[in-house]
């Protein structure tokens, strides 16, 4: 809970970033060396330098497709958040809903999403909608589970305490359940970022005509392995940035764990004489 956990919540940036970057560089160097030493053909395993070259050479094409995929990722992710949040609130507040709908949701998770992609295309046509739905389908389940876990993580003592202050249901939800759920909510939101990237990519394998997933499917058929890897690297980078962005949001919304951002530190002073008066009155004004 405290700010002291530097390893869990990176505080000393340079040190925490240096190690993984160094490891990454080491792996890439080994990869480059092995590919060159054993003269592995590019269509089997391209060297990192070739992948980077591909990204640079094909940048116009790759970033054109990336825009399509990025839209699906964000739209699908937001859809998953809204649906997951709605479902989790219903599950937490209604026993009937939990008994009736939760098993269905779990069962739905066992269906390989890609199998229903063609059906979604039949229903919604050749546009973004089926792909956004698939992205959301892949991402929403762990989201819902962690939302529910978070909203239920409350001790009954705290609810009793709020009741003793005559709090109403909405106040208990907004001022108690929701803030108490934030750690779990953000854990779910983070897991869902990577799932949304995967979901958007595979959604383009069926009935799509653009997007990095579509491009990768095309390139795989044409054994353009270097460009497949180029797309993969771009997608991976998107995943990392998305994940890091949610991490930033978390730091912003949970200052009691991560400390207050500098620009938000707000010294509060109250000195009006009226307040002193009230403080004196308070002894004699209780109901």
């Amino acid at each position: 809970m405290s700010r002291r956990n530097a390893s869990l919540h990176p505080g000393s940036r340079t040190k925490d970033v240096a190690a993984p970057v160094l490891l990454m560089l080491l792996i890439l160097a080994a990869w480059e060396a092995l590919v060159r030493i054993f003269a592995v053909p590019t269509f089997v395993v391209p060297a990192p330098s070739e992948i980077l070259a591909q990204i640079y050479l094909e940048r116009a094409m790759i970033f054109g497709h990336l825009q399509v995929t990025l839209f699906e990722i964000v739209a699908g992710y937001l859809l998953a958040c809204v649906v997951g949040f709605g479902l989790s609130v219903a599950i937490v507040y209604s026993k009937a809903f939990r008994r009736g709908v939760l098993p269905l949701i779990v069962a739905a998770q066992t269906i390989p999403v890609i199998a229903i992609a063609p059906i979604l295309v039949i229903w919604f046509g050749y546009n973004d909608v089926p792909r956004i739905i698939i992205t959301a389908l892949v991402a929403f389940f762990p989201l819902t589970v962690s939302f529910v876990t978070g909203l239920e993580s409350l001790e009954s003592e705290l609810i009793n305490f709020f009741r003793s202050l005559n709090a109403n249901g909405l106040q208990i939800f907004l001022k108690l359940r929701l803030p108490a759920a934030l750690p779990n909510i953000f854990a779910g939101l983070k897991v869902a970022t990577t799932l949304a990237v995967i979901g958007a990519t595979i959604s383009e394998w069926v009935g799509a005509s653009a997007g990095l997933g579509y491009l990768m499917a095309q390139d795989t058929q044409q054994i353009n392995t270097a460009r497949v890897f180029a797309s993969l690297v771009v997608l991976g980078t998107v995943g990392i940035l998305f994940f890091a962005f949610i991490g930033l949001l978390q730091r912003f919304f949970m200052p009691w764990v991560y400390g207050r951002p500098r620009f938000l530190a707000r010294p509060r002073r109250a000195s009006p004489a009226a307040a002193t008066m009230r403080a004196k009155q308070i002894g004699t004004s209780a109901r």
């Binding site: 001022k175 509060r268 002073r269 109250a270 009226a274 307040a275 002193t276 403080a279």
Partner: peptide
């Protein structure tokens, strides 16, 4: 939670 003015409560608390 009782819906009283927050600024007033805070000032009282501060003192």
């Amino acid at each position: 939670l009782a819906g009283q003015p927050l600024a007033r409560a805070r000032d009282t608390a501060m003192t």
